[in-house]
Amino acid sequence: MAIVEFKGKTFDVDEDGFLQKFEDWCEEWVEYVKDSEGIKELSPEHRKVIDFLQDYYKKNGIAPMVRILSKVTGFKLKHIYELFPSGPGKGACKMAGLPKPTGCV
């Protein structure tokens, strides 16, 4: 796997740029990911999505279904794509440090 260095921190990532360990997540990671995910400036709405994903993951050990993400944040899927152009899986989950989505994608 690859090691990424950014602002004095090092991150262990896979080919798709997902963190290998959730515990490695930090503010620098968010800043590092945002460029490759087509995000210019991080807004409180981005934060809201990231915070919820992390809370849900800590509590349940999996990422929430898209419907639950929409319901809790109040953001329609369309708006989530406006915030995270590659979508809730590849964009938001990656930024929040969650493991890579799996299954028949």
């Binding site: 798709d16 979508g87 590849k90 890579k100």
Partner: peptide, 20 residues
């Protein structure tokens, strides 16, 4: 082939099957 793979294009959540 390795497990899974998450790649794609901006604006879409699917359409590409990543493989390494």
């Amino acid at each position: 082939w390795k497990h899974g793979g998450i790649v794609g294009v901006f604006g879409y959540g699917g359409g590409v099957i990543g493989r390494y």
